[in-house]
Computed example of a mutant assay.
Amino acid sequence: MLPWSAELAGRVERHVVDSAVLRGNPLGDPHERPLYVQLPPGYDDAPERRYPAVFVLQGYTGHLAMWWNRSPFRQPYPELADATFARGEAQPMIIVYVDAWTSYGGSQFLDSPATGRYQTYLCDEVVPWVDARYRTLADRDHRAVSGKSSGGYGAMVTAMLRPDVFGAFATHAGDAHFDVCHRAAFPAVARKLRDQHDGSYDAFLTAFRSRTLPPSGDDMELLEVYGYAAAYSADEDGTVHLPFDAHGAVVPEVWQRWLDRDPVVMAAQPRYRDALRSMRALWIDAGTRDEYYLDFGAAAFNAAVRSAGVPPELVHFELFPAGHGGIEYRYPLALAWLSHRLSP
């Protein structure tokens, strides 16, 4: 495996989207957002042909430049996807890489009064922007959303909240089953907040924003939990409520707001069950050694999907031997699987 960039059989085009809905967002984050569009080999050879599209979401703290990160003996996803098309393992698709970064590290791809309208940005601005400029099959039956970790979470909830836009999804180790993947971490986070910042998130955020040194692991853990709270439990005035108190115990009324956005819980509700049954394809996977226990989240969500009445032949569920990181080789597998189900 080459330690330098591979030559693509297709190409990636880089754009900037000027978002109306992200203008004036509560954090003052940029409203002009990068957008990458990957075209399959042969896109220019058949000018009448139209293609399914998959919109790819990143994990927490992810930004688009990271798609080109290269580790030893591993390839970045755009190269893996291109090779999958070139070998004929996947039907040609257009891949759209979406940015939803915030000053807290991410948005969970939801609309929130504390961060901004990122789900609206994805569904009502990015999707029409792409459809207007590229030869997509511009309807939900030929459009998927996919991602890993928080991106996988975004794929699940976006498909359930906006089945008018997306008719399929793939989630790789997506955040789900919050009682297992999140709740157990709260005492440790409360302790770090107490011992390092006098129990104050205001003090932490002030210190975090003023540092010149790279953030520590503790910094990132504190920021991530606050970012989740900003997505799941913020009031209309932007006030962010934590799901635990100063002693690390769950605050029931706030925790319920988090659970209301847990894909496993959502899948049991009639509105979202209907959305799931409308999907053309669902890919759910995770590593059996996932450090955040998202293998249990994947299994619980799969069970909820089956209980919702989604036909088994439309669902690919798999647990594989791996942790949370280094699983980008899974993405092309889901890409190929989706491509055969979304192509006309």
Rank of each mutant, 00 (worst) to 15 (best):
V96W: 00
V96C: 04
V98D: 06
V98L: 12
A100T: 13
A100P: 07
A100G: 13
A100S: 13
W101G: 09
T102S: 11
T102P: 07
T102E: 06
Y104F: 14
Y104E: 10
G105P: 14
G105A: 13
G105Q: 11
Q108R: 12
Q108Y: 14
L110S: 07
L110F: 01
L110W: 07
L110M: 12
D111W: 06
S112H: 00
A114C: 13
T115K: 11
G116M: 10
G116L: 08
R117G: 07
Y118C: 06
Q119D: 14
T120F: 01
T120L: 03
T120I: 05
L122Y: 04
L122N: 00
D124K: 09
V126M: 09
V126H: 03
V127S: 04
W129H: 10
W129D: 08
V130Q: 01
V130D: 01
D131W: 02
D131N: 14
A132E: 07
A132H: 12
R133D: 08
R133E: 03
Y134K: 11
Y134Q: 09
Y134D: 09
R135V: 07
T136Y: 13
T136A: 07
A138H: 02
A138W: 05
D139H: 15
D139Y: 07
D139W: 11
D139K: 14
H142P: 01
R143L: 05
A144P: 02
V145Q: 02
V145N: 10
S146R: 05
S146Q: 12
S146M: 15
S146C: 14
K148A: 11
K148C: 11
K148E: 14
S149L: 00
S149T: 00
Y153L: 04
G154T: 03
A155L: 03
M156Y: 09
V157S: 04
V157P: 03
V157M: 00
L161R: 09
P163M: 08
P163Y: 11
D164A: 08
D164P: 13
V165N: 06
F166K: 00
F166I: 02
G167Y: 00
G167Q: 03
G167I: 05
G167S: 11
F169W: 06
A170P: 01
A170E: 11
A170Y: 03
T171R: 02
H172M: 06
A173P: 02
A173H: 12
G174L: 10
G174H: 01
G174C: 02
D175W: 05
F178M: 10
F178I: 08
V180E: 09
V180L: 00
V180G: 04
V180T: 14
C181V: 10
C181P: 11
H182D: 06
R183A: 15
R183I: 00
F186R: 14
P187N: 14
V189Q: 11
V189A: 15
V189C: 06
R191P: 09
R191F: 12
R191H: 15
R191Y: 09
K192H: 12
K192N: 10
K192E: 04
L193A: 13
D195N: 11
H197E: 04
H197G: 05
D198E: 15
G199E: 10
S200W: 13
S200P: 13
Y201G: 13
Y201W: 15
Y201P: 10
F204Q: 02
F204V: 06
L205D: 08
L205I: 04
A207C: 02
F208Y: 15
F208M: 06
F208T: 01
F208V: 05
